[in-house]
Write a protein that binds this DNA or RNA. Structure first.
Length: 365
DNA sequence: AAATCGTGGCA
DNA sequence: TTGCCAAGATT
């Protein structure tokens, strides 16, 4: 075990010289720290920054956010993924605003808010309030797994407990704001998953995995889950210059986001047959394929999706939809579509159509 | 405990 | 092209 105060000091000194300039590192208001940490869950820093800027510009404090409607919050989250984070943020803002607007300052109160777990609570307590609380994320786990040669996968409770214990022990009193960020920054910039830059690491002398030459084997990888290829068909139905979209219900992927109807291509079925069947099942509309638009590839969670997209015609232009897979529908102009939040694959589809001479006329409204 | 929830960048 | 992974939370 390295001497804890010099260990922490070396990491803090390194951080002072290498920290990235970030918008939420300017004032450390609890609200901004909270928003940034929610955005950073399972998301890399560079990707979150522009979302953060837009979000706090539109909702500068917890009261503004509490008054927001969920649609607008989701629109600001579009493309970031894990949309329950956005819905939880809106819910938590209402809870905080109703109890006076003061952001909680204890781990128990923070964890009670939707979307805030052990890591985010520790991050808010330390970064916003400088309370002596550890904040253990994947960066911290990786750094400590290497420095202390933890030989069990982080998925195991014992390994997690060991890291948490170390994080609490090594935390220099009164410096959690800087130390917790410093360890995470070290993990993000130096002690990286692949090709770590041990030659520039401030604690390489203390690193047991480096001494043993097994840095690449720490942390021990957990069981990897298979990626499942998925064929999906979706259709763009146009009537009087407006496109048919529906809103996804709660309790499933992309809850609260809008989409073009569609679904998985079943065995023995062509994508064309699938989109006709799915439209019938989800809307009651009888449609036919006018022409293929594009094939969009994207992934989500453990799936790799090949999205077959078609332009459709309706048999009965005056038919009313009977929704079975959505809470709401709209015939929307392209301009109106831009105000709604879509999953990335469907947003890609729209972008492709706009850039395709065959379909630009549909997007002139 | 293990699955689920998104997305894009990287090698 | 495919697999890996990221400032995790929830059920």
């Amino acid at each position: 075990m390295p001497e804890s105060s010099t260990f922490a000091r070396r990491i803090i000194d390194w951080f002072e010289h290498n920290r990235r300039d970030l918008p939420w590192r300017r004032t450390y208001t609890p609200y901004q720290v909270w928003i940034s940490e929610m955005m950073l869950q399972q998301t890399q820093m560079d990707r979150a920054v522009p979302y953060f800027e837009r979000f706090v510009a539109r909702f500068p404090d917890v009261h503004a956010l509490a008054a927001a409607n969920e649609e607008e919050v989701l629109k600001l989250w579009e493309g970031l993924g894990y949309y329950s984070r956005a819905r939880n943020i809106a819910r938590a803002a209402r809870i905080v605003a109703e109890s006076g607007g003061e952001f909680p300052r204890s781990r128990a109160e923070l964890t009670a808010l939707p979307g805030i777990g052990p890591y985010t609570a520790g991050a808010i307590l330390s970064i916003a309030y400088n309370e002596d609380e550890p904040a253990v994320d994947a960066n911290v786990e990786r750094v400590y797994a290497r420095v202390f040669d933890i030989d069990a996968p982080m998925a195991e409770r014992e390994a997690k407990a060991r890291v948490r214990e170390l994080a609490a022990q090594l935390l220099p009193t009164g410096e959690s704001r800087i130390y917790n960020q410093a360890v995470m920054e070290l993990g993000a910039l130096v002690c990286t998953p692949r090709a770590p830059r041990c030659d520039t690491c401030p604690v390489s002398e203390d690193c047991e995995a480096r001494r043993l030459g097994i840095v690449a084997q720490r942390p021990v990888p957990g069981r990897k889950k298979d990626i499942v290829p998925l064929e999906v068909a979706t259709g763009v139905l146009v009537r009087d210059g407006r496109l048919f979209v529906q809103k996804r219900p709660e309790g499933q992927v992309w809850a609260g986001l809008w989409e073009f109807p569609g679904g998985t291509v079943e065995a023995g079925e062509t994508p064309q047959q699938a989109v006709v069947r799915e439209f019938d099942e989800e809307t009651g509309f009888t449609v036919s394929v006018r022409e293929p638009i594009a094939i969009v590839r994207h992934g989500y969670t453990r799936f790799r999706v090949t999205l077959h997209c078609f332009l459709l015609d309706m048999a009965d232009a005056s038919a009313e939809p009977h929704l079975t897979a959505a809470t709401e529908y709209r015939w929307a102009t392209p301009r109106q579509l831009d105000e709604l939040a879509f999953p990335a694959g469907h947003r890609k589809l729209m972008d492709l159509m706009r850039g395709d001479i065959r379909f630009t006329h549909l997007f002139r409204i």
